[in-house]
Each structure stands twice: as C-alpha cells, then as structure tokens.
Design a protein around this nucleic acid. Structure first.
Length: 842
RNA sequence: GCUGCUGUAGCUCAGUGGUAGAGCGCAUCCUUGGUAAGGCUGAGGUCGAGAGUUCAAUUCUCUCCAGCAGCACCA
C-alpha cells in the first residue's frame, strides 16, 4: 500500500486488499458483551441455488449500508449471513445430474460465499451456518419435540397432491392444470397422515400483534390480516324435513328473515349422502369438481345448484326453505353450508335470480323504504332492519346481537369466530429436509426420539434414480428399536417443510451454544431484529411462520421476545428490459450480453440484425434478461455496483438495471475519487455556503439512511459533490471533502478505505465515526424571496433571514422589474410571506 | 370485483401551498499527459385529466383516467 492519491481508482487491486484488511481486523465480529447499544440488521438468508443474483446484491447492499452506518453511529452491530439450504432444487439436481444433494448444496454455498465476499459486505461470518448442517437441524428437531410436548404438534389425515409417476407429494404451485409439473401425470388427491403445527392456536395473537408492528409496511400487515381472516358471526342449526339437521355459518344473522334457501358444498356429507342414492346429484357434484379454479374462471363461473328435495326449517318463521348443493359453497370454510339471503349477498342474488327464488328485503336505507325494489344487485351495506318481526327498526349491528342472543337462549345456534387460517402442514415426503424426530411403533404408536439421540441425521447413501422418497426405500435407515419398548419399529420418513428452517434461524444467528438451540440471555441481547430486509414475496408465509414460531417458543418459555422483527422493509425487484425475436409462432429471447444497445435500437451482436426491445420486467432465466454480478464486478468493481443498487429507484420499488446506469455509476466513482484527491488539510479560509451545504448534507444523509431512503442519500451526495467541485480551495472545502468521504463510506467502502489511507488517516474508515453536525450551520441566514405579480415571478430579492414584512414590501415595490410589470396599475393588495415571497395583486 | 401503491424532463426519481430540480441520456463545443477519459454550454416539463378551496395549487379536497401489485365465490 503506497500513500498518495493515484489519478484513478482501481477496484481490481483495491477491493480484495481492503476485504482482507477487514477480515484481519475482525471489524464486523459482533460482540454480545459490548456495552454499546446493539443493532441487529438482518436480510433474508438466501437459498444456495448456485449463483448470487442481482436481487441478492440489492437486498444485501441495503442491509450492509445500514449495518455500516449503525457502526459509525457507535452501535454494536450483528449482521450475519447463512444458508437456507434444504429444499427441492437440490433433489432435482440430484435426479438430473446424478449428484448428491448435499454435495451440490455445499458446492453452491462455497461459490456464493465467495461471490458475496467480493462485494465487500460487512458480515460477521463467524456465525455462518447452513440449515442442512446436522448441528442446525438437530436443534430444530429438539424444538419440534418441545412444541410436541406443549401440544402444538399433531398428526391428522389430510389431502395432498400425489404425483403417481414420480411417487411424490407436490406443493400446490407444482400442480399445473391438474398435472405434475415434472412428470405431466394427472395429479391425484390422496389422504395421508401428515404432521401439523397448531398455528391456529395463535391466530388471535398473530392478528393482534400486527397492530403493534408500526414499522412494518401497511401492505404486509394487511396481507397477513387477510390471510388470518378473522370473521365473527353466528353458527345456527336448521332442522331438515327428513329429520336430520344442517349447521350453517353466517356473518349476517341480522338478515335471517331474508333467507330464502340453504346451500351446501358439493363435498358436504349431506350432499355425499344424497348422491349415493341419486345419479343426478352425483352427476352434479362431479360437474362442480370439474370447474376451473383460475381467477378468470371464478369470475365468470355461473352459480349452479341442485335441489335435493329436502326442506330446511327456518328457526323463526317455521317456513320450509329449499336445500341446494351449490357450486359456490366451499367445504373448507365455516361449516360448508350457508343460508342464502339474496337481497343482501351478491352470490345469493345471482343464484336466486337463476332459480327464481324469492328476493326479500330485510335491510333498507330507512324504515320507509321497506319495500323498495333492488337495482339488479344485492345490497350488502348498512341500514335499518325491516320485514323482520322483532328486529324491525334495529340497526344492523343491534340486530346481529339480538339474533345471536335469541339463538343462544333457544339453543339452536351460537355466536362464533371463524378463521381463514388453517393449521400448518409441515410434512414433506422428501429426502432433503430435516427428518421429523419420531418413531412409529406397533405397540407404542407415535414415539418421540429422545433428545439424547438427536440429531436424527439424514443418511448419505441414497439414490435418486428411482422415483419416490429415498428415505422410504433406504435399506436400514428407518429400522430402529422403539425408544419406549425396545421392539422393532420404524422411523418417520417425512421431513419438515423448509419454512420451518427459516422460522427460527434469526435466533441461532444471535446465539449458538453447542448443546441447545440458543441461549435465552444471548437472544435477549439482540432480539428483536432491529431491521429485517427482504422480498415482498415472503409477506405472508415466511413472515407469518416466523412470527408464529417466535410466539410459540415464547409461550413454552424458551425466549422472552414475542415478535421477531421490530421493523420490516420489503425491497423491490431488479428488472431489465427483454430482447427477443418472433419467428413463426415462437418467441426467442436473448440475454443482454448478446445484444448491442444504441439509443432506442438494439441489435444482436452476432448478426447485427435488430431485436425487439420488450418490457422492463423482473430478471428471470426464462426471459434471459439477467446480468451476472460477477461479470459486472469484474468490469466496474464492487463499489460501482453497490452504488447503482442504491441510486435512482426508491428501495421499495423496482430497480431497472441498465448498462448506461452502471456506466454512470462508474463515472461517479472516478469523479468522487478525483475530488477526494484534492483534499488539502493545509488549505485556509472559510466558505460559509459550502460549510452549510456540508452540514445540511450530513444531517439529511443520516435521516435518509435511517429511513432506508438510500436513493435520496445518494442524490444528496451528488449535490454535495457538485457544490464542492465548484468551490475554490478553503478549509471549508477540505472539510467538505473529508465529510463527503465519510458519508459515502457505507456505500462505497473500498474506495473509502483507499481514499482514507491516501489522505493520511490512520486505521480503517470502517471503524471511523459519522461526522458531527454543527446545528448552527443548518439554518440559512440569507434567503431568496420571490416577487410575484399576476401570479408570475417578476423578480427575486436576496435579503437577511427574518427581514420584516413592510421592508420586504417596500423592496419589492422598488424593484424596476416589478414597476415595469405593474405599468402604473393600482396596487390593490400585497401579500407578504416572510422569508418566502411577496405577491402583488392589482 | 375488492384492496393497496404509483403517475413531475427521453429514462430513473427528488421536491414544494409561493422561483420546477438531480443523475443518466441527448445536442454543441473544448481538451487529448486525469485518457478503456475529462470539461464547458445547452435543449428538453399543461408536474396524468377535470372540478373545488385560495391572493396563489404540481402540492390540499373531491371525481375520473392509466399502470403495477396483492387478494378473491371466505358466507
């Protein structure tokens, strides 16, 4: 390392040097015993697919800037990294390339870790782990057993998507048009015994907790709220004319006098009974099952019903209502049966119109409008209850309470809360996941593996050349003695959903004892995560599961926190335009590397013929609109890439990648470097305007970073750079350069170290403090005042801040430009806003 | 259909009840020992549309339009 300032910044030789220096100094090691205030900055850990993509780079750069900034503000920062390493792609690779999922995963991790290191992230690598480490998943098995002890784990029969060719269970998203995504075979519904976690026990808590997550995006809280889906209403029993009865659930018991039919789901037990003896009913049910499930199909699907010829007795009027099997009633929600109130529910309205059932008004705008006609659609809104005997004249809310009270006192119904949220099925019939630590014994039944025998380790010698779960056909892995009675027994061969792995990894990052999943005290030092950053695609599942696990572990007394993530930020995607050609019916895509872009046109480099420039969309392999971080870093260095990730787009919005954009960043890196080279500690003289600009920027930049508005911070650094370049040499200018370097250091850490060293500063800038703000310099003492006439700007005045109104008015009227504009007209009114403007009205 | 977000320069975005801004791009010119460059200057805007409040609206209110996203027969 030589002192002095070269004419150009060369990331090719600087980046790796400073990365090594940080490692050597152990800068980013998080000390839980430090007295400093603690900050836990976390980005969603990646799946080791093999390559870091631009989305990762953007995500981790944001967290990195925040982590480095917090360190500069004197915080002890925990900024860890690890690998969400179980999952299907490894098994797919095993089948396609005949490699072991573990080996494939380890190789990917090694490669991606090297890629992340090249970008210079301030990570505490000493805490790194992969969820496929037996050490990690063994502790996960222990936690699973704890939850089992607490009654939060159970088994039940559940329907799954079964691919008969691959002999495996498919996730819903792997079923395309009813066929397996890989085999193309028609997927069957099969009943299997599955492991479940009782997340529904926490539905109320998870919902209430959302209200306190003030630093979560409103959007995400709303999505979770909808997902949990709390609704309150009445479950009531209709006696049937055949002697049986049917339970229905409604959120609008106030409209009970408007009921003109009862509808049950096609898979409702009553419907099944009827179908057993009635071909037409059976045919109708089969027809319902064939119905599509896409949004468009649901939108346009006609409401269809089949009258089963049984009457349902209305609890108040005693009237017999027809009972239909209907295609729009879902078995999974409520009781799988509804009362049809056509006047006040749009679906029921459509149904009643088709089958010519009565449409009775029981809610009106006012009591006078009791018999008003419907305008071709149901009225779901608020109003006064009418045509409803003892409810007449009540508000909707009062009538709801009154009907529930009556139902409960007469024992034909009761108030009930229904949730959309279901228990979480965690069984996967897969190899590459955490083995579920249970044994099936003929005499003892389901027996937990004793904690002393954990971890239950996956066998290495497995083959993927035959379809199905390798754990099932492994020669000896599953054969064990029952831990309870010692007889021959079999291991559970299901493994856990990988969402379980990511539901507590943030605890293990905070604390990693060998003998326990985590240490309660250590966890308390770091949790909750101060800032969590990741993609919006995890708004519901991952974030809800992680919240559930945290609450469940709190519930059984293992940790003190309830909510894992105090503040959540969801960043936008990295996008790129697409390049394609349409030949015949086929569209062929080309990667940015194959295309030469000039102005509005793009040609394929190979044949110099034009290609169509398509929309700017998320980078994806199928559209080939991806750029490789490694190649970009080779060309421009880590700092230019980091700078691009932060500039332009607000972080929550999509960031369009472009060659021109990275070029611009590269130029700015060099421009900043040149300016930093002009640092002269010996320069004398004050430049008040520049000093003011400097301190305003320090203050604003801090605010922007804390709000994660990195693009604004970047814009301010551009401004300060421009102002400093233009200023003549002075002590203020040197100060500006010095501050600018510190402000830019979290974003361009390599350039910052290089310049810091060249300036003759000692130590690493990574350990330096954020510059102090002089509050006196934040306020302007001179202001520019606009002078308007007829709503247009005529002149500006530069005056001392706080110049009184009358003085401003006199100055404005004295202006030659204003006089010319007035042209002798009578001044009727003058509006003076101190420090802002003078408006002359004629 | 419901909900949310967005609409300001060619592009990506700041900003504000009172002078419309930055970066990139574009154009002209200059430099050629900062050179896989650098610099000067410049053009470019009904601040999505309409109405209201105001001395004054891009900003506040209302209506509408467009784009994007999420959810969706949840009783």
């Amino acid at each position: 390392m030589s002192g002095g300032h070269d004419s150009r910044f060369d990331p090719g030789q600087a980046d790796a040097r400073w990365q090594a220096a940080w490692d050597e100094a152990g800068c980013f090691y998080a000390d839980s015993n430090s007295d400093k205030p603690k900050s836990y900055v976390l980005e969603m850990f990646p799946y080791p697919s093999g390559h870091v993509h631009m989305g990762h780079v953007r995500n981790y750069t944001m967290g990195d800037v925040l982590a480095r900034y917090k360190r500069m503000r004197g915080h002890e920062v925990l900024h860890p990294m690890g690998w969400d390493a179980f999952g299907m792609p490894a098994e797919n690779a095993a089948m396609e390339k005949n490699v072991h999922p573990g080996g494939w995963t380890r190789a990917n991790i090694a490669h991606m870790k090297a890629q992340l290191k090249r970008i210079g992230f301030a990570l505490d690598w000493s805490r790194e782990f992969a969820t496929c480490d037996p050490d990690y998943y063994g502790h996960e098995q222990a936690l699973f057993l704890d939850l089992y002890e607490a009654g939060l784990v159970y088994r039940k029969e559940s329907e799954v998507n079964w691919d008969p060719v691959d002999m495996t269970v498919l996730a819903n998203e792997q079923v395309i048009d009813g066929k397996g995504w890989r085999s193309g075979a028609v997927v069957e519904k099969r009943k299997l015994s599955q492991w479940f976690l009782k997340i529904t026990d926490f539905a109320e808590e998870l919902l209430d907790g959302l209200g306190k997550l003030d630093d979560w995006p409103e959007k995400v809280r709303l999505m979770q709220e909808n997902w949990i889906g709390k609704s309150q209403g009445l479950q009531l029993r209709f006696a049937l004319s055949n002697g049986a009865s049917v339970d229905v659930y409604t959120t609008r018991p106030d409209t009970i006098f408007g009921a003109s039919f009862v509808a049950i789901a096609p898979d409702h037990p009553i419907a099944q009974d009827v179908a057993a003896n009635n071909c037409d009913a059976a045919n109708f049910i089969a027809l319902c099952k064939r119905g599509g499930t896409t949004a468009a199909e649901l939108e346009t699907a006609e409401k269809l019903g089949f009258d089963i010829g049984i009457g349902a007795v209305h609890p108040f009027t005693g009237q017999h209502l027809p009972v239909y099997i209907a295609n729009f009633v879902l078995m999974e929600y409520g009781t799988g049966a509804v009362m049809g109130v056509p006047g006040h529910d749009q679906r029921d309205f459509e149904f009643a119109s088709k089958y010519e059932l009565p449409i009775i008004r029981v809610v009106a705008k006012s009591a006078d409008a009791a018999n008003a006609a419907f305008a071709g659609e149901a009225e779901a809104g608020d109003g006064v209850v009418v045509n409803s005997q003892f409810l007449d004249g009540m508000s909707v809310d009062d009538a709801i309470s009154a009907v529930i009270a009556r139902a409960e006192s007469e024992s034909w119904g009761q108030g009930k809360t229904v949730w959309r949220l279901r228990d979480w099925g965690v069984s996967r019939q897969r190899y590459w996941g955490t083995p579920i630590p249970f044994v099936h014994c003929q005499t003892c039944g389901i027996v937990p593996v004793p904690k002393s025998q954990l971890p239950v380790v996956l066998p290495d010698d497995v083959d993927f050349q035959t379809p199905g779960n390798p754990l099932v056909r492994h020669p000896d892995w599953k054969h064990v003695d029952c831990p309870a009675c010692g007889a021959k027994a079999e291991r559970e061969t299901d493994t856990l959903d990988t969402f379980v792995d990511s539901s507590w990894y943030f605890l293990r990052f905070a604390s990693q004892p060998a003998d326990r999943p985590f240490d309660r005290e250590e966890v308390a030092k770091w949790l909750p995560v101060e800032q969590y950053i990741g993609g919006i695609e995890h708004a519901i599942l991952h974030l809800l599961y992680a919240r559930f696990w945290t609450r469940a572990l709190n519930h059984i007394g293992l940790i003190d926190v309830q909510e894992p993530f105090a503040s959540l930020f969801t960043q936008g995607m990295v996008t790129h335009e697409t390049y394609s050609r349409r030949e015949g019916g086929r569209e062929t895509f080309f990667s940015p590397a194959e295309v030469t872009r000039t102005g509005d046109r793009a040609v394929l480099t190979e044949d110099a013929q034009p290609v169509t420039v398509g929309r700017v969309i998320k980078m994806s392999k199928s559209k080939k609109n991806v750029v490789d971080p490694d190649a970009i870093i080779d060309n421009y260095g880590a700092d230019a890439v980091r700078w691009f990730m932060l500039s332009d787009s607000p972080p929550e919005r999509d960031l369009p990648w472009s060659e021109a954009g990275i070029e611009g960043c590269w130029r700015y890196v060099q421009r900043l470097w040149r300016l930093l080279g002009q640092y002269d500690p010996a320069a004398a003289g004050e430049d008040k305007a520049l000093a003011r600009k400097t301190h305003q920027t320090i203050a604003a930049c801090a605010e922007d970073i804390e709000a994660l508005s990195f693009n604004k911070a970047v814009a301010r650094l551009y401004e300060l750079t421009g102002a400093t370049e233009k200023a003549p040499p002075s002590a203020s200018r040197s100060q500006a350069i010095h501050s600018l370097l510190l402000l830019a250091s979290p974003m361009m850490p390599h350039l910052a170290e290089e310049a810091w060293h060249a300036m003759g500063e000692s130590g690493l800038i990574a350990n330096a403090s954020w510059p102090e703000v002089d509050p006196a310099l934040l306020v302007e003492d001179e202001v520019t005042i606009a002078v308007q006439h007829k709503g247009k700007l005529r002149d500006t005045l530069t005056v001392a801040k706080g110049t009184p109104k009358d003085e401003l008015e006199a100055l404005a009227l004295a202006s030659q430009k204003v006089q010319r504009s007035l042209d002798g007209a009578e001044v009727r009114k003058v509006i003076v806003v101190p420090d802002r403007l003078v408006n002359i009205v004629t």
